[in-house]
């Protein structure tokens, strides 16, 4: 019985972790290149909305995913345009993205779906791997997720490999650590940062899409509910390491799943206390990793040529 409970907790923890994972992986790449995007929340909202709208329109969650990816990339580029090209303060530009995303998604949703009582959103199906999925414990834990979840885990490993083992990763890290050094060997700092910002946006868009078409099925205003910020906390807590991001996102996911499961056991405690658990965890994590040597040295600093 206990094992069942634990298996269920871990399995749903994986599901809860995925939106965080995608957004945080994108943010990791962005921050590694020196671009801080605090507007993940807004991008995830737009992603969630676009995913629903285009899933309904195309009849396939993949159409929705594509739209969310492109929309996210566009917002990442917008951030890049302000923060990288125009050298606007990155926090200010990120805050603008949050408000923009909140407004765009809410407005767009009402524009398209106002009056529709219930829309059926074609969501992602869980993979059915036959006997594998039916295995006790391992089945629900490892072999019964949405395809997207496996993509996320694969990307964590892939991005870690790219950042640490390839010339592309070297370039991205150099741009985020010492843009002048990169510039001095002929690397176009702003171009690299723009691309990383777009990638970060696309990933946040996918995170939003996961939320509205895989984890849930439908869009609600402000449904991201702070996950964009938790994703940023994940990046810091994981010390800008994609493999760490995977681990930290899973911890947050499990904490989120756990608090829901704990609520019925302690009816005397107001449920709000459980809801804040993951956020408290994020605060503690950030407080504990305030000064990290892995912080990209040129994070949030626009590069101006001498």
């Amino acid at each position: 019985m206990d094992l069942m409970l634990l298996t269920g907790l871990l399995a749903s923890g994986v599901r809860f972790a995925m939106p965080l994972l995608f957004a945080a992986l994108g943010e990791t790449v962005g921050q590694k290149s020196g671009v801080l995007n605090v507007g993940l929340e807004g991008i995830m909202l737009v992603g969630a909305f676009l995913a629903v709208a285009f899933s309904v329109a195309t009849g396939s969650p993949w159409g929705g995913l594509l739209a969310a990816t492109l929309g996210g990339a566009a917002m990442g580029l917008l951030h890049g345009f302000f923060a990288v090209r125009l050298k606007v303060d990155q926090i200010v530009s990120g805050l603008a993205l949050i408000l923009l995303g909140l407004g765009l998604s809410g407005f767009g949703y009402r524009l398209i779906f106002a009056g529709h009582q219930s829309i059926r959103v074609p969501g992602f199906e869980r993979l059915d791997l036959g006997p594998l999925s039916d295995l006790p414990v391992l089945g629900p834990l490892l072999f019964s997720h949405h395809l997207l979840a496996y993509v996320g885990i694969f990307m964590a490993v892939g991005l870690w490999w790219i950042l640490t083992r390839t010339g592309l990763g070297l370039t991205i890290r150099a741009v985020g650590e010492n843009p002048k050094a990169a510039d001095s060997v002929g690397i176009d700092v702003d171009k690299v940062r723009m691309r990383c910002a777009a990638f970060g946006g696309a990933m946040a868009g996918i995170g939003g899409a996961y939320l509205s078409t895989a984890q849930l099925a439908g869009f609600v205003e402000d449904m991201v509910a702070g996950r964009g910020f938790i994703a940023i906390a994940c990046v810091v807590f994981a010390r800008w390491n994609p493999l760490g991001v995977l681990a930290v996102a899973l911890i947050f996911g499990i904490a989120d799943a756990g608090q829901i499961r704990l609520q019925p056991f302690f009816p005397q405690i107001p449920y709000q206390f459980f809801i804040i658990l993951p956020y408290v965890l994020a605060l503690v994590a950030l407080a504990g990793s305030a000064k990290s040597a892995s912080l990209p040295a040129a994070l949030a600093q626009p590069y101006r040529k001498a």
Binding site: T166, G167, L168, L170, T171, N178, A181, A182, V185, A293
Partner: peptide, 26 residues
Amino acid sequence: HQHYALVGNFTVAETLALGRAGPGVL
């Protein structure tokens, strides 16, 4: 230059590879 343009957490080898190596595996 008088003020060096180096990345502190790169190894010497990575420093020399930056901008010269392709985007692929190092």
